[in-house]
């Protein structure tokens, strides 16, 4: 606890000192608290459907589900309120913050993934994915309710990593990328850096070590023979990857790592998962052949975050929405710099 306080104090000192160095390091002009204030203001403005209250730059670039829209369009016209869940990821070094947020929209609920870039005290970039309960969230329509019931992310996400054990930005990025490299065309034999107690949350549902029979698209929870999906989700992160089940994910492309926080060991990414629909069944590393039910082309666009400790992934949180198969990205590859 003491180390946390000292660290926080150090951060505030760092923030206080920042203006002195403003000329040499303009990127550090907005610290953690400042970035969170921008997210607060943006979410409040969104809930009020009032872009003028969000502190936006005059040339702000806004995308929703991969489409460049005018500010005021899309969710700005349909948002009806905030839920109770919000999970922030901050990167003061490059002036960016991202969040997973449960929201109300129209008559329904949704999960908002959003990334803001702050430049000269104003929000210059807004990148959002709205995972809507009916449109494109698959069978996971209750995800926002699950997040609301949690109300806040697990405390482990924000716990500072001891200074001596911190990984570099590059190391964190490479570890997060190892997740995608291992999952793409997953064969069970790759490098899978997971901690033993690793857990994953997808669209509000825990999809590791899960004993509950979740309502999944195309899966009958009352089938005579237990569908493989339930057996699979009862496993941990590493055991899942070692089975080689994810072979049907043909490509994880346009991987961007815009937010890396060395203090908490968190990485926030945007990626596309392409499923060609040509792998309707896979043979697992244990010799069994199972149906994937994935026999048509489709793409997920996702925000996916990782908590990494000692070179191993301990927590994963992802929010995804359907996109036309193969949809091109709408942000440049080098997301870390936002350029």
């Amino acid at each position: 606890m003491r180390s946390v306080k000292i660290l926080a104090a150090a951060l505030f000192l760092g923030a206080a000192a920042a203006p002195l160095h403003a000329g040499s390091e303009p990127a550090a002009a907005c610290d953690r608290a400042c970035l969170k204030q921008h997210m607060d203001g943006y979410l409040a403005a969104l809930a009020a459907r009032d872009p003028s209250a969000a502190g936006l730059a005059s040339d702000v670039r806004f995308t929703e589900n991969g489409q460049a829209l005018s500010v005021g369009d899309g969710l700005w016209g349909t948002m009806s309120g905030l839920g109770t869940y919000r999970h922030d990821f901050v990167d003061p070094q490059n002036g960016q913050i991202a969040a997973f947020v449960s929201i109300r929209e129209g008559k329904g609920k949704a999960i908002l993934t959003t990334r803001l870039k702050v430049r000269d005290g104003r929000i210059a970039e807004i990148e959002t994915i709205v995972s809507r309960s009916d449109l494109g969230a698959g069978g996971m329509g209750e995800g926002p309710d699950r997040l609301d019931a949690m109300a806040r992310p697990e405390a482990i996400w924000s716990r500072p990593v001891a200074r001596a054990e911190r990984m570099s930005r590059e190391q964190l990025r490479e570890t997060a990328n190892a997740y995608f490299a291992g999952l793409e065309r997953n064969d069970g034999k790759g490098y899978y850096p997971f901690s033993d107690d690793c857990e994953r949350l997808e669209n509000g549902f825990r999809t590791t070590n899960q004993q509950e029979r979740l309502a999944l698209p195309g899966v009958d929870p009352n089938a005579e023979e237990l569908p493989f999906a339930y057996e699979y989700m009862a496993l941990g992160c590493k055991a899942q990857f070692e089975l080689g089940y994810y072979r049907f994910v043909d490509r994880i492309r346009d991987r961007r790592f815009p937010i890396i926080d060395t203090e908490t060991g968190t990485v926030f990414t945007f990626v596309f998962f392409d499923h060609s629909g040509t792998i309707p069944e896979v043979t697992l590393t244990d010799g069994r052949t199972v149906q994937t039910n994935l026999d048509r082309p489709y793409t997920w666009e996702m925000g996916e975050a990782f908590r990494i400790e000692g070179g191993k992934i301990r927590r994963i949180e992802a929010v995804m929405a359907s996109a036309p198969y193969g949809m091109p990205p709408n942000w440049p590859a080098n997301g870390e710099d936002g350029e």
């Binding site: 198969y325 949809m327 091109p328």
Partner: peptide, 16 residues
């Protein structure tokens, strides 16, 4: 294009 996405002629419905 298939459903607006510029994919390869070996992909999408061409593959399935």
């Amino acid at each position: 294009t298939e459903n607006t996405a510029p994919i390869a002629l070996t992909d999408g419905l061409w593959a399935t």
